[in-house]
């Protein structure tokens, strides 16, 4: 082997595996990637209406689990609105917080998946590959935000409800894990569109996830943090920003803006 060899060597599968390993080990490798999709949730705007929940179900073909499904605790909501009470009557307050996959940059769910069915992609997304998932459910154990939902059954739609299924999104079979994808199909679409237009990058506002689109209070803002002029970058500069369970150091891509109290 001459000194020139290593350059070629990197293309060989074995060393590309080693390469990948080094990448895995390098903290923050995702920051070198194309986009850094981020969502902000303004808790001062969110009023808990759950329009986002329905929007996500519609866009992402979430199953109808039925009364029995709920009784068994097997609901499926890629985004859910959690409620927390504070105080007692009459000085009682109710706070809402929409909770979806936080697309953690240091995602615990990714490290545990034995088959890399969930991994970080070039856009900084926590991606879920249904076809690869073998259903260990360990990612759901490891996720501190409880946003991973498992397919306990092959879900059925009472005919003709199946006609509402969004053809851009696959329907998951029993035994696989699923969760919010940041509406990856919309991201892909926007990228394709940009490519067709001869643009290298997607413009701000071209990707609107279903929940963001629906939210009547405009509490959700989505975009690329790498673009300093994007709406999401601007809302990130809001001093109210915080991350849920920040102490766990998962570095979520969902940033919450504190609710304002008077």
């Amino acid at each position: 082997m001459t000194a020139k060899e290593p350059a070629r060597k990197q293309e060989e599968p074995a060393s590309s595996l080693a390469e990948k390993w080094r990448e895995f080990r390098r903290p923050g490798y995702y920051q070198e990637f194309d986009y850094d999709w981020t969502m902000t949730v303004d808790l001062d705007r969110c009023m808990g209406c759950e329009a986002c929940v329905t929007a996500c179900k519609a866009e992402n073909n979430l199953p109808i689990v039925g009364e029995k499904g709920f009784a068994q605790g097997r609901e499926m909501q890629w985004i859910r609105v959690e409620r927390y009470w504070e105080g007692e009557y009459p000085n009682v307050k109710l706070r809402f917080i929409p909770m979806m996959c936080q697309h953690c940059d240091a995602a615990p769910c990714e490290t545990v998946c034995p088959v890399t069915a969930t991994y970080h992609n070039q856009d900084g997304l926590n991606v879920q590959v249904y076809n690869r998932c073998i259903g260990t459910r360990s990612c759901a154990v490891y996720c501190p935000y409880e946003v991973r939902y498992f397919n306990y059954y092959d879900h059925r739609w009472d005919s003709p409800l199946e006609q509402q299924l969004n053809p851009d999104v696959t329907v998951r079979e029993k035994g696989v894990m699923e969760k919010c994808t940041f509406c990856i199909q919309r991201i892909r679409q926007a990228k394709d569109l940009a490519k067709d237009d001869g643009r290298r990058r997607v413009r701000d506002g071209e990707v609107v996830p279903a929940c963001v689109q629906a939210c009547p209070a405009e509490a959700l803002v989505f975009g690329d943090r790498k673009d300093p002029d994007s709406r999401v970058s601007k809302s990130l500069s809001d001093p109210r920003g915080y991350r849920v369970l920040d102490e766990l150091n998962t570095r979520p891509s969902v940033i919450y803006l504190k609710k304002v109290t008077v």
Partner: peptide, 15 residues
């Protein structure tokens, strides 16, 4: 045949 639904696991108790 049915799926893991045959067991009692649920959300968030997946194991």
């Amino acid at each position: 045949n049915l799926g893991i639904g045959a067991a009692g696991m649920n959300h968030p108790q997946v194991w």
